[in-house]
Nucleic acid binder design. Structure first.
Length: 683
RNA sequence: GCCUCCUUAGCUCAGCGGUAGAGCACUUCCAUGGUAAGGAAGGGGUCCCCGGUUCAAGUCCGGGAGGAGGCUCCA
């Protein structure tokens, strides 16, 4: 038989040869490192398979080692099985859910209720790790076996594992495989590595509760997360990388750099912006406001609350009542309370009952309902459109307590929101313009590593969306076309749409690799309908406008949180809360330093003066740690000559130039100001 | 909301039944030093909150609040 390698070369092997045979044919070293193979048969998707399965004639085959993604996945998946084997040895009777490989490791969901062990804690993990290493040294092969559905069911009924049985019942007969290593048998599609032996370094990282099949109404299993490596050194490096990521965590940097805080008394998920953090917000907002003026947006300002009726019309209330702060009720117009019900309970959540027409106010969860009222204040001609209303609007959402985190998930946040009201003909151009604005924003902050996601309806769950299916189809198609015409590569995600329409989301990753939605452009045919918005077209007919919701940052909170991590706190000059710090060498230069600071401030720069009686070395060190981009050293020479020496942050590392030289103070001010303007795209 | 973990000085953390500790920060004094930490002295704590066990509780037990990582949900 003939096998093609990824480089295009061919190998002749005897019929029935396996991946291992192929690896051996190439080199003994590769055979030792080989974990699995990736097989591509004519015209099919590549498939990762066990090393010891016979190869199909004529296929293209890549040998996978731990260096490849597929190799890692097989390695970690096998590690999950190894952990399961260890758990079964330590806790007989343990029942298993699913145990997949994930990005950066693996987990297994287990139910310990039948073992007498009521719960697992961190202290139990080292024993499990030790057992895994012991079993791994036993060098048991992962053996694949095809079984009939009946046999599979019989096995797990005998074993008493209801979760596996449920999984098997959903599978088709004839496609079921078991894998066994040592005494442990698991239902598994594979692939696996040949044996447990390469699993040398093991770290179980955390415990979490996870509902069976992600369903809150089903039992909660214990999820054990772990990661393994073929060498201890790789594990050490992995842990070191995690530690470095933690150094970039915006919660840590935000505290160190004095950007924002939380207070128990103010409340969870309600960030408080400190002076330096407020500068970030305002600078970003100014940057966007300037862009928006150039793009035909008009600013508006609306209140933080509105009558419940506004949100009844918009559909936010009562359907999303449990993710909103409880309404402020004035009185109740509905039927009397049922016998025995505490009237107090009615002053909080009263979701879901449209007959009970409470009167009151709601903290706004979105700005759009308010904006519809601005549009609706007078009749519009098609000649007026598009109308683009922009507001940095602060909204409040009652996120579940377990969901809150730093600045990326909060309960009160400010959207750089705008709503474009346009004719159906204008939708595509307006949508494209919003994409362009979002990309401009991301470019200004040097974001390159983002993905654009088309968020679509969940076809299996259409009742949670408002509006007509035909409109949804049209809207989803319009988004695809606009993105394609903007040259944007997109991925499509079902079930991620807003309840009122599909959207295009810009996703970026944080320091820990979690993906967050920042910018978003959303298409909405529904609110115009609900609020009966119209314009008069060329034929003097009343026609529905289309609404586009868009927020290039998404929210200032999340955007800044992610940007802190993206930059590691090293903000570009235009964004840095303190752009320059003057460092007099001795107290004798303090006065001159103040005059330099004054000159720079008059150019609009944010400047501090470090007048402490410390050595320059100390002042420079601390300016570096505070991530001040321009450090301006002033000694007797500068004071004499009317100049200032500039040291840029990061200088001195790797033998770089330490200072960029002495400038006349006026020139320095002009240079820095020009750099700021360039950064904001206003050169 | 559920699971696991955490909460001690402004910050980072040690202490884990017997009168609260370190480094940094802060204050004062000395030193006036040219590109990443000069020296000395000093001040600073309801050990998250509420109960319980104990002669004695940051320390053990229960409950609560807040935070972290997951799960679920998501406008």
């Amino acid at each position: 038989m003939q096998i093609t390698l990824p480089d295009g070369s061919h190998r002749q092997l005897p019929d029935g040869a396996t991946g291992r045979d192929l690896a051996l044919d190439i080199s003994a070293g590769l055979a030792r490192a080989a974990l699995a193979v990736e097989v591509t048969e004519d015209g099919r998707q590549p498939e990762v398979r066990d090393l010891d399965r016979p190869l199909p004639d004529g296929a293209t085959v890549a040998i996978l080692t731990f260096d490849s993604e597929g190799g890692k996945q097989a390695f970690w998946h096998s590690s999950a099985h190894l952990m399961a084997e260890a758990l079964e040895a330590l806790y007989p009777g343990v029942q298993f859910g699913i145990g997949p490989a994930i990005e950066g490791g693996f987990y297994y969901d287990v139910d310990l209720s039948a073992t007498g062990k009521d719960r697992l804690t961190d202290e139990d993990l080292p024993a499990i790790e030790a057992k895994m290493k012991e079993l791994a040294r036993g060098d048991s092969a992962f053996e694949r076996r095809e079984v009939s559905k009946a046999d599979a069911i019989a096995y797990f009924e005998e074993k008493g594992d209801p979760y596996k049985l449920e999984l098997i019942r959903d599978l088709e007969d004839g496609t079921i495989t078991f894998y066994q290593q040592g005494g442990f048998v698991d239902l598994c599609r594979g692939p696996h590595i040949p044996s447990t032996k390469p699993i040398k370094a093991v770290k179980l990282t955390s415990l979490a509760g996870a509902y069976w099949r992600g369903d809150e109404s089903r039992p909660q299993l214990t999820r054990i997360y772990g990661v393994t490596f073929p060498k201890q050194k790789l594990l050490d490096e992995h842990l070191e990388r995690l530690e470095l990521a933690r150094q970039r965590d915006h919660r840590k940097l935000g505290k160190e750099m004095d950007l924002f805080m939380f207070s128990d008394k103010v409340g969870p998920g309600l960030p408080i912006w400190l002076p330096k953090g407020a500068v970030l917000r305002e600078t970003l907002a100014d940057f966007l406001k300037t862009e928006q003026v150039a793009r035909g947006y008009e600013p508006v300002v609306t209140p933080h609350i509105a009558r419940l009726d506004l949100f009844r019309t918009s559909g936010h209330y009562p359907y999303y009542a449990d993710s909103q702060f409880p309404p402020m009720l004035e009185d109740e117009l509905g039927p009397p309370l049922p016998e025995g019900e505490d009237p107090e309970s009615r002053t909080h959540h009263t979701p879901g009952d449209p007959e009970r027409r409470e009167r009151g106010y709601l903290l706004k969860p979105m700005n759009c309902p308010h904006h519809t009222q601005i549009y609706a204040r007078r009749p519009h001609s098609y000649r007026d459109l598009p109308v683009r209303l922009a507001e940095f609007g602060t909204v409040y959402r009652y996120e579940q307590s377990g969901e809150l985190g730093g600045l990326t998930r909060v309960r009160g946040f400010t959207q750089d929101d705008a709503h474009v009201f346009c004719t159906p003909d204008q939708v595509k151009d307006e949508f494209k313009a919003a994409i362009d604005l979002t990309m401009t924003v991301l470019r200004a902050l040097n974001y390159e590593d983002y993905t654009a996601q088309v968020s679509l309806r969940d076809p299996a769950n259409t009742e949670k969306y408002i509006g007509e299916p035909a409109q949804w189809d049209a809207a989803e198609q319009a988004i695809r076309e606009a993105a394609a015409e903007m040259g944007l590569e997109t991925v499509e995600e079902e079930g991620e749409a807003a309840f009122y329409g599909p959207k295009l989301d810009f996703m970026v990753k944080d320091a820990l690799g979690r993906s967050w939605q920042l910018g978003t452009v959303q298409l909405d045919y529904n609110l115009p309908e609900r609020f009966d918005l119209t314009y008069i077209d060329e034929n003097d007919d009343r026609v529905r406008p289309v609404m586009i919701h868009r927020a290039p940052f998404g929210s200032l909170e999340r955007f800044i949180g992610v940007t802190i991590e993206h930059t590691g706190g090293d903000f570009p000059l235009w964004l840095a809360p303190v752009q320059a710090r003057i460092l007099p060498i001795t107290d004798a230069q303090n006065e001159y330093a103040q005059s330099v600071a004054q000159t720079l401030r008059q150019s609009g720069l944010r400047v501090e003066v470090d007048t402490r009686s410390e050595k320059v070395g100390r002042k420079i060190r601390e300016a570096e740690l505070d991530k001040v981009p321009a450090q301006i050293v002033i000694g007797a020479k500068e004071a004499e000559a009317g100049t200032a020496s500039v040291r840029r942050r990061g200088a001195g590392e790797d033998g770089q130039t330490i200072d960029t030289g002495a400038f006349l103070v006026e020139d320095l001010a002009r240079n820095l100001k020009a750099e700021v303007d360039r950064g904001m795209g206003r050169a």
